[in-house]
Design a protein around this nucleic acid. Structure first.
Lengths: 282, 282
DNA sequence: CATGGTAAG
DNA sequence: CTTATCATG
C-alpha cells in the first residue's frame, strides 16, 4: 500500500490471488472446515462450483466481506457456481449465453478492473462447472454441447477482455499426466478421447489458452485436484486433475505461483475436490 | 433352570422379559448403540417398530441368536415391524387381517407356548405400529381405520389366546398424564379426543385390556417413551407416552416390573423412542 | 430434527 | 461414498 499523503501508483495492485474449488455442497464444506481454510488463505477472488445451496444460505456462510455473484441451478440442490471477490466487479454475466444452459448453474463471468503500467485493464474471471457426463448416455451429450458452447465463448472472452481466466471443475483430464490410473479410465467420462480433444483445442493454437497449473508445475504427474470418496483414493493420491486455471497468454505470464491445497486439507478435507490457488502478479 | 437329571417342571419358565421399541430405522439405531443396549438387557421377546430396512439387513444386524418375524412395508424404507424371540413361536401372522393394511408393515402376531401350573398355555404377542396421523388429512383417516380394525382384533385375540399382549408404538397418548404439554396438543394428532376415545375402549370395560406400564407406575406423569428430536425436548423430558404394553387381565397380573429405558439411553440415545421393558412372571 | 430412498456426482 | 431433496415421522 502507498503511504498516506503520497499519490498511489495505478500499478500498486501487487499480487492477485485467485482460487477455485468445487465445494460439493457449500453447507457440507463449511461443516468440514472450509471457513478455516478460507481464513488462512488471503484470497482475492474465490470461485466456487457445486455450491448446491440457495443464494441466501451462500451469503450467510461467506459473510459480508465479499461481493458475491452466484448462479443457482433451476433444480434445487444441484450444481451452482459463484464468484466471491474482495473487489467489486464492474460487470457480471450469469450464464454462458446459450439458452439451453441458462438455468443450469454452471457458468458465471465477472469483469474486474486491474491497474497495469498506469492504465486500467479489464480482467474477466469465469467460474465454470462442466457436466461430469456419463459415457453413452444423454448426460454425455449435454457435456459435449456445453463444451461446444465453451469452445465458442473462450475466443470471444480472449478478444474482448485484456485478461481472461476460466477456472473451475471442467470434469476432463487433459493428458495422461492428469489422471493417476489413466489406462483404466480411457473409456470413462472425464478421460474420453473426444473430451480430451476439446482441451487440445482450448489449450492449443486454435483457441490459445494456457493451463496455468500445468505450466508452473512442469511435465509431472498431477498435481491432482479430485479424489473419489470411495475406498482409499485420497490416501493413495489416486486422483484426477480436472480443476483448472485456463488463462489467456498475457495473464498466464503473470502467474507466479500455483498450488493445490491438498496438504492444507489433509486433516480437514472439506470436499472431494481440493482448491487450486494461483497468484497473479500485477 | 432345573438341574440336570431331574425332570424340569412345566412351570419353570420364570421371568419372561418382553421389550418394545420404535427404533426409527434399525440401521441408524445400531450406529447409535442399540446393540450395546440389547446386550445388557437379557430380553426374551423383542418387539420392534419402524424397522425401515430390508429383511436381509435386519437379520444381519440382530444376528443368529433370534427367531425373527419381520413384516416389511411395501414402500421401501417405511414402517416395518418385527418380533425377535429366543423361543420359536408356534404360529405367526404377518398382518392385522384387513386387506387394506396387508402390506403396511404395521402389525405382526406371534404365538408362544408358556408353561403355567403344569399346563402349556398360549401367549400371543403383537408388535404394532399405529399411523402417526395428521389432523384433518387422509393420514388421519387411515389412522382411524387402523384403530377400527384394532378394536375388532383385540377381543378376538383375548378370546382365542390364553394371554394376549399388544405392544408397540400406538401413536396416541391416552390421558393427560401421558403427555407433558397436553394442553398444547389437544388439537394435534396423537392426543385428539377421538383417538383417546379408542383407548378408553381398548383399556375400559368394552374391550378390557390393561395398560401395564400405567398400572405399575400408578397415576403419575409419564413415564414418557417418545421425545421429539427438535429443540431440547429430550433434555427437558417434554415427552409423550405413546409406546404401550396392553395386556389381557390375566397377563397383566403377571407383570412384575416395567421400565422405560430412558436413563440407559441417555448417553447413547439410539432412537427418538425409548424401549419399554416389562417382566412377566410365569 | 431425524429417518431412508433417490438422483447425481 | 458423499451430496441435497423429498416424504414421512
Amino acid at each position: 500500500m502507498a503511504s498516506a499523503g503520497e499519490p498511489s501508483p495505478a500499478s500498486a495492485l501487487g499480487t492477485l490471488r485467485i482460487a477455485t474449488v468445487n465445494v460439493n455442497g457449500i453447507r457440507a464444506a463449511y461443516k468440514r472446515g472450509m471457513a478455516e481454510w478460507l481464513a488462512g488463505r488471503d484470497i482475492d477472488i474465490l470461485c466456487l462450483q457445486e455450491v448446491r445451496a440457495p443464494d441466501k444460505i451462500v451469503r450467510e456462510l461467506l459473510g459480508d466481506d465479499w461481493h458475491i455473484l452466484h448462479a443457482e441451478a433451476e433444480a434445487k440442490g444441484r450444481a451452482g457456481v459463484a464468484i466471491a471477490s474482495r473487489q467489486e466487479p464492474v460487470a457480471v454475466r450469469e450464464h454462458i449465453g446459450e439458452e439451453y444452459f441458462a438455468t443450469s448453474g454452471r457458468w458465471v463471468e465477472a469483469d474486474f478492473k486491474v491497474p497495469v503500467d498506469g492504465e486500467e485493464k479489464l480482467l474477466t474471471v469465469v467460474s465454470a462447472y462442466v457436466h461430469s457426463g456419463e459415457a453413452g448416455t444423454p448426460k454425455q451429450e449435454d457435456k459435449y454441447r456445453f463444451l461446444d458452447v465453451m469452445a465458442a465463448r473462450l475466443p470471444v472472452l480472449a478478444a474482448t477482455s485484456d485478461y481472461a481466466l476460466i477456472v473451475g471443475d471442467l470434469n476432463v483430464g487433459h493428458t495422461t499426466l492428469d489422471i493417476k490410473n489413466w489406462k483404466g479410465n480411457v473409456k470413462r467420462a472425464g478421460f474420453l478421447p473426444e473430451e480430451r480433444a476439446y482441451f487440445d483445442r482450448f489449450l492449443g493454437e486454435e483457441i490459445g489458452y494456457v493451463d496455468v497449473a500445468r505450466k508452473l508445475a512442469g511435465e509431472v504427474a498431477g498435481p491432482y485436484t479430485w479424489w473419489s470418496w470411495r475406498g482409499q483414493a485420497f490416501d493413495n493420491d489416486a486422483g484426477w486433475r480436472i480443476d483448472y486455471h485456463m488463462a489467456t497468454p498475457g495473464l498466464a505470464e503473470r502467474a507466479v505461483h500455483a498450488v493445490v491445497d491438498r496438504a492444507a486439507t489433509y486433516d480437514a478435507r472439506f470436499s472431494d475436490h481440493a482448491p487450486v490457488v494461483v497468484d497473479y502478479q500485477f
